[in-house]
Computed example of a mutant assay.
Amino acid sequence: MGQEFERILNRFLALSPAGLERAVLALIDEKGIDEGNRGALMGFILTKLAEDSPQALLKILPRLPVFPGAEAEDARVRDMFASNALENWAKADPDAAAAWIGDHREQFSGSFGEGVKQRVIAGAASKDPVRAFELVNEMGITDQERAVMSITRAAKGEEGRTAALAALRDYLPVSGGVEKEKMLDKGIGELAARSFRQGRSPA
């Protein structure tokens, strides 16, 4: 891929989310573009949309063409983009992201389940760990130990770790049994490790 490709890519990446959405649809219909370049441009644009406008990305995904003979890989890539978008969306509006999963899960492959829910609660936890723990139950997440780790790993800075610890203690009281005590210990251990690592990092 040469300078011409880079020039086109930079032009696309300078677009607004609405412009990127139109660019993806134009790329789908464009007949005169090399398939390798089409795929590369599509990947860059979809990645940027997942970050800048998750809802737009999720709206576009079902309209992307499926390549014959590559259905499994196609489904995996769609799930990856959807997961990235939903995690980013959950950072701003976890309830909307969780509701979207319930309404649109049938559009994606069978792998679009527990893993993406974990991504959503991680996104929610970056701003509101209490709401993230509430979503564990509301979304029917079965691997609660993994959920605890997803939420505690999302904590940023001293304030974030303090909020995550308070939410963790409310969600997993010691009186909740041996398994919950173990999860509480793991969550506290993860927060302590993050505090140590971030404390050693340069400002």
Rank of each mutant, 00 (worst) to 15 (best):
R38H: 10
K127T: 14
T142R: 08
A192H: 05
I188W: 00
S16C: 08
W89K: 00
G39S: 12
D185C: 00
L25R: 15
T142C: 01
L61Q: 13
G199E: 05
T47D: 13
D128E: 07
Q107L: 13
D93P: 11
L49E: 06
G189R: 02
Q144W: 05
Y171Q: 10
V136Q: 03
A72Q: 12
K59C: 08
E181A: 11
D95V: 05
M1P: 08
Q118D: 10
A203R: 14
L41R: 00
Y171P: 08
P94C: 03
I45W: 03
N10I: 11
F108T: 08
D103T: 06
W100L: 02
V130I: 11
E21A: 07
A125L: 06
A164C: 05
E71A: 14
P54F: 15
L58Y: 04
R63C: 08
V24C: 08
A147D: 05
I45L: 12
E73G: 04
L46F: 02
H104Q: 09
R194I: 14
A147L: 04
G19R: 02
E6H: 12
E159A: 12
F67D: 09
A23R: 01
A50V: 13
R78N: 14
E158Y: 00
R76G: 03
K182E: 10
E30F: 02
I33A: 05
N37R: 10
E87S: 11
L41P: 06
K117W: 01
A50L: 05
D128P: 06
F133G: 05
E51Y: 15
P65C: 07
A163Q: 09
A14C: 11
E21F: 01
N37Q: 14
S195D: 15
L64H: 03
G123H: 02
D74L: 01
E35K: 10
E35C: 07
R105D: 06
A193I: 07
K180V: 01
V174R: 03
G157L: 10
M149W: 03
N137T: 10
P17E: 08
L61D: 15
E138V: 07
A18V: 13
A14D: 13
V120M: 04
P173D: 03
S53K: 03
R153F: 14
P54Y: 12
A18E: 15
M139E: 04
S83Q: 09
R200E: 06
R7P: 09
G176Q: 04
A40L: 13
G110H: 02
F44R: 11
T47R: 08
G140L: 00
M80C: 07
I33R: 11
A72C: 00
A56D: 11
L165T: 05
P68D: 04
E179G: 00
A82L: 04
E190F: 01
S150L: 06
P17T: 05
I141M: 15
S150V: 10
T162M: 06
R197N: 10
V148P: 00
R146L: 08
K156P: 01
M42P: 02
L184K: 00
G69W: 10
